[in-house]
């Protein structure tokens, strides 16, 4: 699938921001002025800019509001509604906390659940697509949840670290270890989820399997088209391997080392851990899209 920058940024940032919201509204982080303001603002800003990015690839941005209408059936609509609800709930929570100094645990739980549900809906936009076997697997939702929540933890840690608060290094490390596990789980499943995973092949796509082995002779047009640009993206093996290494190293291993090191060296290391994580995640999320194969490309001879 075409790794549109807007979508890569959207999923990474909204996941991060929402993950942070989920923790903050559960009472995580020092209950002190600077942290309140910075952490809440960061969470809202990151999630909000992620949300804005998501409109970047719309053909008709002016109609984005219509996306709130189909929550009964559409994961994308649910995601939009939940996102707004989560931000509203968290916004209220944050306002009361920052201005009033009170952390309303009831509201907090609501905001946290909404944030987690939003991440889940984002994941389901992809996980629901039977047409993209690499996404349409159980681990996909866990992947988004794990990455979002761990990112959120890192983000809170980074804010806390910078202002000299407690950074929960061990907890973060534990989350990272779990996430690494989920990532490996997803990656292992994805490796097997080629186009033919659900039995779709050029033979079933064309229905000509009864005659023999099918290959594309001529594409409908010699030039390119929306379908090819959008759904038959191809990424070189070496490039993918490189990016995956960088993604793993920056996204998880560096933060893991830094969050433990932060306990010894200083909280500010958490900020570096966050930056590394975000960069690593951008690389991995780019691959999440770029490597995903769509079954319609079978009609264009991609096996």
């Amino acid at each position: 699938m075409h790794p549109a920058p807007s979508i890569v940024l959207f999923t990474v940032l909204s996941g991060l921001g929402l993950g942070q919201m989920a923790w903050l509204s559960l009472g995580l982080g020092p209950d002190e002025g600077l942290f309140r303001w910075i952490a809440c603002a960061l969470a809202l800003a990151v999630a909000g800019s992620g949300g804005l990015c998501s409109t970047g690839h719309l053909g008709r941005r002016d109609r984005a509001w219509r996306a709130f209408s189909q929550w009964r059936s559409s994961w994308l609509s649910r995601e939009a509604c939940l996102m707004v609800a989560a931000m509203a709930a968290f916004g209220l929570y944050a306002a009361i906390w920052c201005l009033g100094g009170v952390r309303l645990w009831g509201l907090g739980i609501v905001a946290s659940v909404l944030a987690v549900a939003t991440i889940y809906s984002t994941a389901m936009i992809y996980a629901q697509l039977k047409t993209v076997p690499r996404w349409s697997m159980t681990p996909t939702a866990w992947l988004f949840l794990a990455v979002g929540l761990t990112g959120g933890l890192l983000a809170s840690g980074a804010v806390a670290g910078l202002i000299g608060g407690a950074v929960h290094g061990w907890w973060t490390a534990l989350a990272l270890v779990i996430t690494i596990g989920v990532v490996i789980w997803w990656q292992t499943a994805a490796a097997g989820a080629v186009r033919s995973a659900d039995g779709s092949t050029m033979e079933t796509a064309t229905g000509l399997g009864f005659m023999g082995r099918v290959r594309l002779f001529e594409a409908p047009h010699t030039g390119s088209n929306y379908l090819l640009k959008e759904m038959a993206y191809e990424v070189g093996r070496n490039r993918a391997f490189e990016l995956r290494r960088i993604g793993a190293a920056l996204g998880f291993l560096t933060p893991l080392v830094f969050s433990v090191a932060a306990l010894l060296v200083g909280g500010w290391l958490m900020a570096l851990a966050l930056v590394a994580h975000v960069v690593g995640m951008l690389a991995l999320r780019w691959l999440f899209f770029a490597e995903a194969e769509h079954v319609q490309a079978l009609y264009y001879g991609r096996k």
């Binding site: 690839h57 719309l58 008709r60 697509l129 039977k130």
Partner: peptide
């Protein structure tokens, strides 16, 4: 009403929708 998000084209196995 379409906002041009492209998700329906992704959901179609047949490549039958084009933006």
């Amino acid at each position: 009403h379409c906002m041009g998000c492209g998700l329906c084209a992704w959901a179609c196995p047949y490549g039958a929708r084009e933006m």
